[in-house]
């Protein structure tokens, strides 16, 4: 589904990704972990097409299409979704209107018919039930005055509604208390399916107690330096990121 090869990317003239290679198959959940500054968020933003993130080498194929050539909206219509680390407040734009505009824009781009307000509201209600979100959130302006937890839940709610093929969660756990973390994780788990893949970017292994990954990758200095199953996350938790660097450099062996 997603094939990243030798990806190099710059932000503000500084090279952040330095040859990242990763393959994600349909239905898989991959966790990307790594120390601050490793390039985790850059990866998410590059995949979603955020302006200012300049790809200097490498390729990203999504279902056989080179998505690096596409503007963000076309990537979204193709099925890429980025849950932002810092969801943006948009005063004056009603959440429901925003969601309907987004969903219909994607449907239009895919040649599907647009949903009228009745059909849209029906879909929204179904998704609200899954996410355990009150519809009060829908009446307000996008993220305006939302608590940190509400913002993150709104991201996952958007994901539920837009039904992407690849969902990238950029530190969705940051700033959440344990209850909010559980709610967000439940939402994500409810959306797991054999057709949908996830890239879960996180600094802490805590989130992975609730969202069980198929694979864990360690990103350091712009490259994946270690890959494994979920036990890798537990090792990191135990030994910290310093271990990865030392391990890379061949200073110490595999911890027991």
């Amino acid at each position: 589904m997603l094939k990243i090869e030798n990806l190099h990317a710059r932000v503000a003239g500084k090279e952040i990704l330095k040859g990242l290679t990763l393959a994600v198959n349909a239905g898989e959940v991959h966790a990307i972990m790594g120390p601050n500054g490793a390039g985790k968020s850059t990866l998410g933003n590059v995949l979603a097409g955020r302006p200012g993130y300049e790809v200097t080498a490498g390729s990203v194929e999504f279902n056989g299409v080179n998505i690096l050539e596409l503007p963000p909206e076309e990537r979204a219509a193709a099925g890429v979704f980025l849950a932002l680390q810092y969801p943006v407040e948009i005063p004056g734009v009603n959440n429901t209107y925003f969601l309907r505009t987004a969903l219909n824009a994607q449907r239009k781009a895919r040649g599907e018919n647009e949903l009228d307000s009745m059909a849209f509201l029906k879909t929204v209600r179904e998704k609200l039930k899954i996410m355990q979100i009150s519809d009060d959130l829908l009446k307000r302006a996008v993220n305006e005055g939302f608590s940190g937890g509400e913002k993150k839940r709104n991201e996952i709610f958007q994901m539920a509604l837009l039904e992407p093929k690849l969902a990238i969660l950029d530190e969705t756990d940051s700033g959440l208390d344990i209850d909010a973390l559980k709610q967000v994780s439940q939402g994500v788990n409810a959306l797991r399916s054999p057709e949908r893949s996830f890239l879960v970017i996180t600094h802490y292994q805590r989130l992975l107690d609730y969202i069980t990954p198929d694979f864990v990758h360690v990103l350091a200095d712009g490259k994946i330096v270690e890959s494994g199953d979920r036990t890798l996350a537990l090792k990191l938790e135990e030994h910290g990121y310093a271990w990865v660097k030392e391990h890379e450099a061949g200073v110490v062996g595999e911890p027991a």
Partner: peptide, 23 residues
């Protein structure tokens, strides 16, 4: 940031600009 947010949800750039300006 708001413009990218709307685009990342599938709203074409011109339309996203319109939505933000209208708001």
């Amino acid at each position: 940031r708001a413009l990218f947010y709307l685009q990342s949800r599938g709203i074409p750039q011109a339309q996203a600009r319109g939505v933000l300006t209208a708001a």
